[in-house]
């Protein structure tokens, strides 16, 4: 595919952020999680796009928006393979893959209903760990339960 035709698929933005290499089935989850459906920014997105790395991928472009670390952590939890590209006046200012933080604070609910964070007014706090099979898990700082990716629920 030549470059021009590829670009046509999702329009270029002047200023803002491109989230690329989202696993195609996670695209809508990323949009919801970042509350993009409620934002006033111009947003372009595509799913099911061809990708050399993934087979199929999703891409989201948000005009005039740059993400804070907390939001980047969220993206990394849902789509660890994603790339974040910051655009200034049509130029790429910064391009980097998202990476999982060591700790995830406040943004994720603990899946244990008996956890103090679900009972008292206590902000959640997890460390990001790998189990013996190499699967990413979140370990609750309070109840010490570990939760698999499927159980991650954002506030």
């Amino acid at each position: 595919m030549d470059k021009k035709r590829k670009e046509l698929k999702v329009s270029a933005i002047r200023n803002g952020t491109v989230i690329d290499h989202i696993p195609t089935e996670k695209s809508f989850q990323v949009i919801n999680m970042l509350n993009l459906n409620e934002s006033n920014h111009q947003i372009y997105f595509g799913t099911g796009l061809e990708s050399k790395k993934f087979g199929k991928k999703g891409i989201i472009k948000i005009s005039d928006k740059y993400f804070a670390d907390e939001e980047i952590s969220k993206i990394a939890l849902v789509a660890p393979s994603a790339t974040l590209i910051e655009i200034f006046d049509y130029e790429v200012r910064k391009k980097e893959s998202v990476h999982l933080p060591e700790r995830v604070e406040k943004i994720v609910r603990c899946f244990n209903p008996k956890c103090v964070t679900n009972i008292q007014d206590v902000p959640t706090n997890f460390s990001v760990i790998n189990d013996h099979k190499g699967q990413m898990k979140l370990a609750c700082h309070y109840c010490e339960k570990t939760m698999a990716k499927e159980n991650i629920d954002f506030f």
Binding site: K114, V116, T117, I119, Q120, C143, E144
Partner: peptide, 9 residues
């Protein structure tokens, strides 16, 4: 305390 994690808190 019956609540998980209450002691850490």
């Amino acid at each position: 305390n019956p609540t998980d994690g209450s002691a850490r808190y």
